Simulated assay, not measured.
Amino acid sequence: MSFDNVCKYLAAEYPEQFVSWLLGDSNTAIQILPTELSRQPIRADAVILLTNTNQILHLEFQTLPESNPPLPLRMLDYWVRLYREYERPIEQVVIFLKETTSVAAYTDQLSVGNTQHRYQIVRLWEQEATLMLANPALLPFVTLAKTDPTIVLAQVAKQIDMIEEVDQRRNISACVEILASLRFDKNYIRRFLREELMRESPIYQEIIQEGKRDTIIRQLTHRFDNVSPEIQQQIQTLSLDKLDALSEALLDFTNIFELTVWLQSH
């Protein structure tokens, strides 16, 4: 399950709420910028331009504290690419989703020789949930915030039921279910959230599909070292059923040619 994809969806769908939450600015015009940052492409999680202040908000969501390359180096790399592209002040925020005691979740800078680069860290488990509860865009994060675990799902479910627009209610419910599974058992979550509501959400299907694609590409890259962009593009076009079939078939592949043959036949 791709927790990052849920977060990317929320940041892209509700950028104003993230700007208000993280920068305390609720009266600025914004623009969503491309997340692929050029030459040898890397993709940021969310990039938002605050047009009134000519400032960029760059968000990265982390489920696990470890990353390769290490997070501080990645953040500097993102900053350089963003600044080279837009030449604007950049505010970077890393949001850690799952509670951890790892030093990485408490490291907010890269310091090597004369080079120093700082960014903000938000550890969700330290965030007060009260303000988030009143904001539909942030409801999926409430289950990971500093809350009473015995009542938080009931509180979130009540707020979801108050969302009037049907598609928004379905999508937020689906995002809540996925992120809440970082903290709670899925059967326990479904005692509070209506499963049919989540299953009817188009974004739920997209997130599941994207997560499976990402997992398969990582598995293939780990196994065969190099998976060409052409093959990755073919995998991106597969339906959910075919992704399921590929995830089983790849266990029997011994070389990249067998993967190519499989893709041609499907």
Rank of each mutant, 00 (worst) to 15 (best):
P149H: 08
T115D: 06
T100F: 13
V156D: 00
N54D: 14
P202I: 06
E230D: 10
Q31A: 14
S228R: 07
Q205V: 10
P70W: 11
D161F: 01
K212F: 05
A145G: 10
W125T: 05
Q40E: 15
P70C: 09
Q31C: 10
T130G: 05
K158D: 13
H222D: 12
I32R: 15
A104R: 08
Q209D: 03
C175A: 07
A137V: 03
S102R: 14
F192G: 03
D225C: 03
I203R: 00
L263Q: 04
Q55H: 15
L193Q: 05
R88A: 04
I235D: 10
V80S: 15
S265A: 11
E99T: 11
I172C: 06
D214S: 14
C175D: 08
L22S: 11
Q232M: 12
I216C: 13
W262Q: 02
E128D: 15
E230Q: 14
E85D: 11
D148L: 05
L33R: 06
L197N: 05
S265K: 14
P136W: 00
M162L: 15
E196W: 08
K186M: 14
L153W: 00
S111L: 10
L246Y: 09
R223Y: 13
A245L: 10
S67F: 07
P136N: 05
S102Y: 13
D167N: 15
K242I: 05
V156G: 02
M132A: 07
E126H: 14
